[in-house]
Amino acid sequence: MAAGSSIDALGQFELHPVLGALGESLRFSQSPMMMIVAAVVVLAFLYAGMRPAAVVPGRLQSAAEMCYDFIYNMAVDTIGVEGRAFFPFVFTLFFFILAGNYLGLLPFSFAFTSHIAVTLALALMVFCLSIIVSLKVQGAKFFAHFMPAGAPKALAPLLIPIEILSFLSRPVSLSIRLFANMVAGHVMFDMFAAFTIMLAGLGFFGDIIAVGPVVINIALMALELLVGALQAYVFAILTCIYLREAVAH
Protein backbone atom coordinates (compact mmCIF):
# COMPACT_ATOMS: atom_id res chain seq x y z
CA MET A 1 0.00 0.00 0.00
CA ALA A 2 2.80 2.41 0.82
CA ALA A 3 4.59 3.25 -2.39
CA GLY A 4 7.81 5.06 -1.45
CA SER A 5 6.95 7.88 0.92
CA SER A 6 3.32 8.37 -0.11
CA ILE A 7 0.40 6.57 1.52
CA ASP A 8 -2.46 5.47 -0.70
CA ALA A 9 -5.08 4.97 1.99
CA LEU A 10 -8.08 5.16 -0.33
CA GLY A 11 -6.83 2.64 -2.91
CA GLN A 12 -8.31 -0.16 -0.83
CA PHE A 13 -11.83 1.03 -1.68
CA GLU A 14 -11.38 0.72 -5.44
CA LEU A 15 -13.48 -1.92 -7.13
CA HIS A 16 -11.83 -4.55 -9.29
CA PRO A 17 -13.42 -7.37 -11.25
CA VAL A 18 -13.06 -10.70 -9.50
CA LEU A 19 -13.36 -14.34 -10.62
CA GLY A 20 -11.22 -13.89 -13.76
CA ALA A 21 -12.74 -13.57 -17.23
CA LEU A 22 -16.29 -14.34 -16.09
CA GLY A 23 -16.20 -11.54 -13.54
CA GLU A 24 -14.62 -9.25 -16.12
CA SER A 25 -17.46 -9.72 -18.57
CA LEU A 26 -20.15 -9.44 -15.89
CA ARG A 27 -18.46 -6.38 -14.27
CA PHE A 28 -18.61 -8.41 -11.07
CA SER A 29 -16.47 -6.68 -8.40
CA GLN A 30 -15.52 -7.48 -4.78
CA SER A 31 -18.49 -5.51 -3.49
CA PRO A 32 -21.33 -7.73 -4.79
CA MET A 33 -19.18 -10.78 -4.11
CA MET A 34 -18.85 -9.83 -0.44
CA MET A 35 -22.59 -9.11 -0.30
CA ILE A 36 -23.25 -12.65 -1.47
CA VAL A 37 -20.71 -13.99 1.03
CA ALA A 38 -22.37 -11.98 3.82
CA ALA A 39 -25.81 -13.27 2.91
CA VAL A 40 -24.53 -16.85 2.70
CA VAL A 41 -22.73 -16.56 6.07
CA VAL A 42 -25.88 -15.30 7.80
CA LEU A 43 -28.11 -17.92 6.17
CA ALA A 44 -25.63 -20.71 6.93
CA PHE A 45 -25.41 -19.58 10.56
CA LEU A 46 -29.19 -19.59 10.94
CA TYR A 47 -29.60 -22.89 9.07
CA ALA A 48 -26.86 -24.67 11.01
CA GLY A 49 -28.07 -23.16 14.26
CA MET A 50 -31.73 -24.02 13.90
CA ARG A 51 -31.42 -27.42 12.19
CA PRO A 52 -31.25 -29.42 15.44
CA ALA A 53 -34.39 -27.61 16.72
CA ALA A 54 -33.64 -29.02 20.17
CA VAL A 55 -35.73 -28.11 23.20
CA VAL A 56 -32.50 -27.60 25.14
CA PRO A 57 -30.41 -25.70 22.60
CA GLY A 58 -26.72 -26.27 21.96
CA ARG A 59 -24.24 -23.45 21.57
CA LEU A 60 -24.94 -22.61 17.94
CA GLN A 61 -28.69 -22.87 18.42
CA SER A 62 -28.46 -20.64 21.50
CA ALA A 63 -26.54 -18.08 19.50
CA ALA A 64 -29.10 -18.17 16.69
CA GLU A 65 -31.99 -17.87 19.15
CA MET A 66 -30.30 -14.99 20.94
CA CYS A 67 -29.89 -13.14 17.64
CA TYR A 68 -33.56 -13.74 16.87
CA ASP A 69 -34.65 -12.57 20.33
CA PHE A 70 -32.40 -9.53 20.24
CA ILE A 71 -33.90 -8.16 17.04
CA TYR A 72 -37.42 -9.35 17.89
CA ASN A 73 -37.33 -7.48 21.20
CA MET A 74 -35.84 -4.43 19.53
CA ALA A 75 -38.58 -4.39 16.90
CA VAL A 76 -41.47 -5.05 19.27
CA ASP A 77 -40.23 -2.74 22.06
CA THR A 78 -39.62 0.13 19.67
CA ILE A 79 -42.40 -0.19 17.11
CA GLY A 80 -45.05 -1.87 19.24
CA VAL A 81 -47.14 -4.91 18.30
CA GLU A 82 -47.08 -3.83 14.65
CA GLY A 83 -43.33 -4.37 14.88
CA ARG A 84 -43.83 -8.08 14.32
CA ALA A 85 -44.67 -7.36 10.70
CA PHE A 86 -41.37 -5.55 10.19
CA PHE A 87 -39.23 -7.96 12.19
CA PRO A 88 -37.94 -9.90 9.14
CA PHE A 89 -36.94 -6.67 7.44
CA VAL A 90 -35.05 -5.33 10.48
CA PHE A 91 -33.43 -8.71 11.09
CA THR A 92 -32.20 -8.94 7.51
CA LEU A 93 -30.94 -5.37 7.56
CA PHE A 94 -29.08 -5.75 10.86
CA PHE A 95 -27.34 -9.00 10.03
CA PHE A 96 -26.53 -8.01 6.46
CA ILE A 97 -24.78 -4.85 7.71
CA LEU A 98 -23.16 -6.62 10.67
CA ALA A 99 -21.81 -9.40 8.46
CA GLY A 100 -20.62 -6.83 5.92
CA ASN A 101 -18.81 -4.81 8.58
CA TYR A 102 -17.16 -7.84 10.17
CA LEU A 103 -16.25 -9.61 6.93
CA GLY A 104 -14.57 -6.39 5.86
CA LEU A 105 -12.18 -6.71 8.79
CA LEU A 106 -10.73 -9.99 7.49
CA PRO A 107 -7.47 -9.77 5.55
CA PHE A 108 -7.82 -9.65 1.73
CA SER A 109 -11.49 -8.90 2.21
CA PHE A 110 -13.60 -5.91 1.30
CA ALA A 111 -16.14 -3.98 3.36
CA PHE A 112 -19.04 -3.23 1.03
CA THR A 113 -20.53 -0.91 3.68
CA SER A 114 -17.63 1.48 2.99
CA HIS A 115 -19.27 2.57 -0.28
CA ILE A 116 -21.85 5.33 -0.05
CA ALA A 117 -23.70 3.83 -3.01
CA VAL A 118 -24.42 0.74 -0.92
CA THR A 119 -25.30 2.52 2.33
CA LEU A 120 -27.43 5.11 0.54
CA ALA A 121 -29.33 2.35 -1.24
CA LEU A 122 -30.02 0.65 2.10
CA ALA A 123 -31.03 3.96 3.71
CA LEU A 124 -33.33 4.90 0.82
CA MET A 125 -34.96 1.49 1.09
CA VAL A 126 -35.74 2.20 4.76
CA PHE A 127 -36.84 5.76 3.96
CA CYS A 128 -39.19 4.71 1.13
CA LEU A 129 -40.63 1.91 3.24
CA SER A 130 -41.35 4.32 6.09
CA ILE A 131 -43.05 6.77 3.72
CA ILE A 132 -45.16 4.03 2.13
CA VAL A 133 -46.20 2.68 5.54
CA SER A 134 -46.95 6.23 6.76
CA LEU A 135 -49.17 6.97 3.78
CA LYS A 136 -50.92 3.64 4.13
CA VAL A 137 -51.56 3.94 7.88
CA GLN A 138 -52.06 7.68 8.31
CA GLY A 139 -53.19 8.75 4.86
CA ALA A 140 -53.17 12.52 4.30
CA LYS A 141 -52.64 13.04 8.03
CA PHE A 142 -49.01 12.16 7.39
CA PHE A 143 -48.46 15.63 5.88
CA ALA A 144 -49.80 17.29 9.02
CA HIS A 145 -46.60 16.18 10.79
CA PHE A 146 -44.67 18.79 8.87
CA MET A 147 -46.42 21.55 10.85
CA PRO A 148 -45.58 21.19 14.56
CA ALA A 149 -48.74 21.13 16.67
CA GLY A 150 -49.39 24.30 18.63
CA ALA A 151 -47.04 26.52 16.64
CA PRO A 152 -48.35 29.91 15.48
CA LYS A 153 -49.68 29.91 11.93
CA ALA A 154 -47.51 32.91 11.04
CA LEU A 155 -44.37 30.80 11.48
CA ALA A 156 -45.54 28.13 9.04
CA PRO A 157 -43.45 29.40 6.08
CA LEU A 158 -40.34 28.98 8.23
CA LEU A 159 -41.24 25.85 10.19
CA ILE A 160 -42.52 23.71 7.33
CA PRO A 161 -39.30 23.92 5.25
CA ILE A 162 -37.26 23.17 8.38
CA GLU A 163 -39.41 20.12 9.17
CA ILE A 164 -39.17 18.91 5.58
CA LEU A 165 -35.39 19.33 5.60
CA SER A 166 -35.21 17.49 8.92
CA PHE A 167 -37.27 14.68 7.43
CA LEU A 168 -35.21 14.54 4.24
CA SER A 169 -31.99 14.41 6.25
CA ARG A 170 -32.88 10.94 7.58
CA PRO A 171 -31.61 8.80 4.69
CA VAL A 172 -28.57 11.08 4.40
CA SER A 173 -27.63 10.74 8.06
CA LEU A 174 -28.29 6.97 7.99
CA SER A 175 -26.06 6.43 4.98
CA ILE A 176 -23.31 8.93 5.83
CA ARG A 177 -22.93 7.57 9.37
CA LEU A 178 -22.35 3.98 8.30
CA PHE A 179 -20.22 4.85 5.28
CA ALA A 180 -18.04 7.40 7.12
CA ASN A 181 -17.41 5.11 10.08
CA MET A 182 -16.35 2.23 7.88
CA VAL A 183 -14.13 4.38 5.64
CA ALA A 184 -12.50 6.06 8.65
CA GLY A 185 -11.74 2.72 10.29
CA HIS A 186 -10.21 1.16 7.20
CA VAL A 187 -8.20 4.29 6.36
CA MET A 188 -6.74 4.27 9.87
CA PHE A 189 -5.76 0.60 9.50
CA ASP A 190 -4.04 1.40 6.24
CA MET A 191 -2.26 4.48 7.62
CA PHE A 192 -0.79 2.71 10.63
CA ALA A 193 0.16 -0.33 8.58
CA ALA A 194 1.95 1.99 6.16
CA PHE A 195 3.75 3.69 9.07
CA THR A 196 5.07 0.31 10.13
CA ILE A 197 6.50 -0.39 6.67
CA MET A 198 8.00 3.08 6.40
CA LEU A 199 9.61 2.92 9.85
CA ALA A 200 10.96 -0.53 9.17
CA GLY A 201 12.90 0.93 6.27
CA LEU A 202 14.85 3.27 8.57
CA GLY A 203 17.27 0.74 10.01
CA PHE A 204 17.63 -0.66 13.51
CA PHE A 205 15.85 2.07 15.50
CA GLY A 206 13.11 2.22 12.92
CA ASP A 207 12.54 -1.50 13.44
CA ILE A 208 12.00 -0.91 17.15
CA ILE A 209 9.69 2.07 16.74
CA ALA A 210 7.75 0.19 14.03
CA VAL A 211 6.24 -1.99 16.76
CA GLY A 212 4.20 1.02 17.88
CA PRO A 213 1.86 1.23 14.86
CA VAL A 214 1.35 -2.54 15.01
CA VAL A 215 0.19 -2.23 18.61
CA ILE A 216 -2.09 0.65 17.63
CA ASN A 217 -3.55 -1.45 14.81
CA ILE A 218 -4.34 -4.26 17.25
CA ALA A 219 -6.16 -1.78 19.48
CA LEU A 220 -7.91 -0.37 16.40
CA MET A 221 -9.15 -3.84 15.52
CA ALA A 222 -10.91 -3.99 18.89
CA LEU A 223 -12.38 -0.56 18.26
CA GLU A 224 -13.54 -1.58 14.79
CA LEU A 225 -15.27 -4.66 16.20
CA LEU A 226 -17.22 -2.32 18.46
CA VAL A 227 -17.91 0.17 15.67
CA GLY A 228 -19.07 -2.57 13.29
CA ALA A 229 -21.65 -3.86 15.77
CA LEU A 230 -22.64 -0.39 16.92
CA GLN A 231 -23.26 0.89 13.41
CA ALA A 232 -25.39 -2.12 12.53
CA TYR A 233 -27.30 -1.60 15.78
CA VAL A 234 -27.83 2.11 15.13
CA PHE A 235 -29.02 1.41 11.59
CA ALA A 236 -31.50 -1.17 12.85
CA ILE A 237 -32.79 0.88 15.78
CA LEU A 238 -33.28 3.95 13.57
CA THR A 239 -35.20 1.80 11.10
CA CYS A 240 -37.41 0.75 14.01
CA ILE A 241 -37.87 4.35 15.18
CA TYR A 242 -38.84 5.56 11.71
CA LEU A 243 -41.27 2.68 11.32
CA ARG A 244 -42.77 3.40 14.75
CA GLU A 245 -43.54 6.94 13.63
CA ALA A 246 -45.01 5.52 10.45
CA VAL A 247 -47.42 3.17 12.23
CA ALA A 248 -48.35 5.68 15.00
CA HIS A 249 -51.80 7.12 14.38
Binding site: S166, S169, R170, V172, S173, L230, V234, L238
Partner: peptide
Protein backbone atom coordinates in the same frame (compact mmCIF):
# COMPACT_ATOMS: atom_id res chain seq x y z
CA UNK B 1 -23.18 4.91 22.67
CA UNK B 2 -25.57 4.77 19.74
CA UNK B 3 -27.01 8.11 20.82
CA UNK B 4 -23.54 9.66 20.91
CA UNK B 5 -22.65 8.28 17.50
CA UNK B 6 -25.90 9.57 16.03
CA UNK B 7 -25.82 13.16 17.23
CA UNK B 8 -22.87 14.28 15.11
CA UNK B 9 -24.19 13.00 11.81
CA UNK B 10 -27.72 14.22 12.57
CA UNK B 11 -26.34 17.75 12.79
CA UNK B 12 -24.29 17.53 9.60
CA UNK B 13 -26.71 15.60 7.41
CA UNK B 14 -29.50 18.18 7.55
CA UNK B 15 -26.97 20.82 6.53
CA UNK B 16 -25.84 18.59 3.65
CA UNK B 17 -29.44 18.21 2.47
Amino acid sequence: LGLVVRSGTELVSALVV
